[in-house]
């Protein structure tokens, strides 16, 4: 594979079937995707377009039925479950729509969880910088139940950032937040890409959320049907309307 831009993740001929026989559903239909480093990529599509499946298979949470996928130079479609877990641990950060935090751990403990799991040391300067940007300084000792929804998602972003992963996958990170908190969160994510060169791939169905990205991939029926650079919310909305969303 010769490329001019460095790739954080990629997929070739990614196919994913759920179920067997007549009940089989093809979620991904021979898809090719490249996620460039230091870019904020949004994956959009209507329900059932396969966008979540794409994210899960790219991140090694789920396995492809056919095809290959890479995280950096590592082909994870060929790895054992244990090795994939290790790749996730060392190279990937996650932000989910909800239930991002371990309820019994404090905000700080949740943030350092990936480092604790892999036994790596915390870089205090980096930690402080993230905490400062996300405005979590006075919330570190709180348990998730004591935080607002926006704060909880910011803790999740901090957790994703703190290990300096090659790539962060976000699945509707603002989906459960009110518009102000959502905007704040997406702003932070964009800053992480611009200021620290962090790579982020985000699944969303919200055109406003997609407008924070550098590049939007449109999915329908398990294929990439279009791509948009430097999107605006209106342009994305128009494109979605064309797709019959």
């Amino acid at each position: 594979m010769t490329t001019t831009v460095t790739l954080a993740a990629s997929m070739r001929g990614g196919t994913k079937d759920y179920g067997h026989g007549d009940a089989a559903v093809r979620a991904l239909d021979g898809i090719d995707v490249d996620i460039a480093t230091a870019e904020f990529t949004a994956i959009m599509g209507p329900s059932g377009s396969g966008k979540s499946t794409l994210l899960h298979t790219l991140a090694g949470l789920d396995r492809l039925t056919a095809g290959q996928s890479w995280i950096g130079e590592t082909e994870i479609s060929a790895l054992s479950e244990d090795k994939i877990t290790q790749v996730r641990r060392d190279k990937i950060g996650f932000v989910f729509q909800a239930f991002n935090l371990i309820p019994s751990l404090s905000a700080k403990e949740n943030i350092t969880l990936p480092l604790d799991i892999s036994g790596r040391d915390i870089d205090p300067a980096w930690f402080d910088e993230i905490i400062g940007i996300l405005g979590l300084g006075d919330r570190l000792t709180h348990l998730p139940a004591e935080l607002s929804g926006g704060q909880q998602q910011r803790v999740a972003v901090a957790r994703a950032l703190v290990a300096r992963p090659e790539l962060i996958f976000a699945d509707e990170p603002s989906g459960n937040l009110d518009s102000r908190s959502g905007a704040e969160l997406l702003g932070f994510m964009r800053r992480a890409v611009k200021e620290f060169g962090q790579t982020i791939a985000m699944v969303t169905h919200d055109p406003t959320a997609a407008s924070y990205s550098d590049r939007v991939l449109f999915l329908a029926d398990g294929r990439i049907v279009d791509e948009m650079r430097e999107p605006t919310a209106d342009a994305v909305l128009d494109r979605m309307k064309q797709m019959g969303h």
């Binding site: 877990t85 996730r88 641990r89 996650f94 239930f99 371990i102 309820p103 990936p114 799991i117």
Partner: peptide
Amino acid sequence: REIGLLRAVGSRRRS
């Protein structure tokens, strides 16, 4: 959920 999250962020089965 919690165990799933732990696995997602890199806890091995063994762990």
